[in-house]
Design a protein around this nucleic acid. Structure first.
Lengths: 220, 220
DNA sequence: ACACACAAACCGACCAGTTGGTATGTTGCG
DNA sequence: CGCAACATACCAACTGGTCGGTTTGTGTGT
């Protein structure tokens, strides 16, 4: 119900917005109270400390984004690879509006929380890697249908997609421009397409050596 | 140099360390003074504000890392593609020690500075994209020798490498483990290798390797 | 229907410690 | 001297957090 939104909900939604704009450390609890339109007493009624609202905001972020991706259309593709590529294209479509509107709350927070608060850092890590885990099944299914280099695992490719996205957000913030983020997502899509573009025969890799040129490592 | 290190130098080096650990907003000028072993008066003698030391730290970071990469060995490779891959491998070798020791100062700062200070954000952007620019010539030369998809540009691939690295730092911070960052750099190397290993298109004659280098940047 | 008990939700004034920044020095050297 | 390079003491504003109090909702006995 939008009408019976409790002060806790309002504070949590305010936290998503303000922390994405200013970062966690620069956000004051008065900021959150003002944005939420509640009093300081209400804040400390629901959250024992500023750190606690950081943890709760990360969990709230996981819930909100989890619902968004769960209902997205890319799951409907029949071929696993199309679901993976569909996910990447969906991420690109989300790159709209101002920078704080499409960047990732937990990616922003974890940078500051690394030293500040293990609890917040763990909540952010759970959000990022939990989201990555939702891709693993599709990637693994695609790998079962198509030969990829043997050192590639579904888990590492799933986390790599998150690395590219997080890095794209940083570059977009630096230049204050979405275009650079879109470019990186394009590269990510191209990488996945290339990885899975080899012939689908069940050949155990004979030729598939690691790309080490025998002539390099010469002399500096 | 080490003998006559002025308070400004000590503060700048302290800023590199502390801001990478705690982030910019959570760093106080007293933190910097304590780490540098100087007084607050010295701080405000050299820097007009906390924001000013952020800008100066970003510029100092550019100078330090610029020197590190300028003298690295990967420039010595003859084939441009080997220089590009050598850069990526060099970045992977730098992933050692604790997380705050290998992460990127300006990548950390720009997240917080986006809303806080345009001056800091611009200094961080200059550092990131200035570093990316040092790769463009080698990538362009590699593209001249090998066919890649037509939508790929040297500039966008150069910035993409930075996106992957910045994202890898975030994941490493979240999990407090270097391994996940190394994995992403592996994927980046594989992507570049795949991009430049495509079938050479309609003209196989242009593919025969080290024939003519339009220009060299000999740098022992 | 009504009065009452009781707890959760919420308010806003207040506090002690911290923050960025300043004013006023003191030192050392050409 | 005169000036740059520092140091010390200090301040006004702000910060996270506390505390007593008020409102609102809910169940209960009558």
């Amino acid at each position: 119900m939008a009408t019976s939104q409790t002060a806790r909900d309002k504070l949590l939604n305010a936290a998503l917005a303000v922390i994405r704009e200013k970062g966690f450390s620069a956000t004051t609890v008065d900021d959150l109270c003002a944005r939420a339109g509640v009093s300081k007493g209400a804040f400390f009624h629901y959250f024992s400390s500023k750190e606690a609202v950081g943890v709760a905001a990360a969990e709230h972020w996981s819930a909100v984004t989890g619902a968004l991706f769960a209902q997205a259309a890319y799951h409907a593709h029949e071929r696993p690879l199309d679901r993976v590529l569909g996910y990447i294209r969906f991420r690109r479509e989300l790159l709209r509006g101002t920078v704080p509107e499409f960047t990732c709350l937990v990616g922003t927070m974890v940078q500051e929380a690394y030293d500040l608060s293990p609890a917040i850092r763990d909540a952010c890590a759970a959000s990022i890697f939990g989201h990555a885990d939702t891709l693993v099944a599709d990637i693994a299914a695609a790998m079962a249908q198509c030969r990829v280099p043997p050192t590639v695992t579904a888990e590492s490719l799933a986390t790599h997609t998150q690395a590219v996205l997080q890095g794209a957000f940083i570059l977009a913030k630096a230049r204050d421009d979405v275009a650079v983020a879109i470019d990186s997502v394009d590269h990510l899509e191209r990488y996945v397409a290339l990885l899975f573009s080899q012939a689908p025969g069940p050949h155990p890799s004979a030729r598939d050596g690691h790309n080490h040129h025998p002539e390099d490592e010469g002399q500096p």
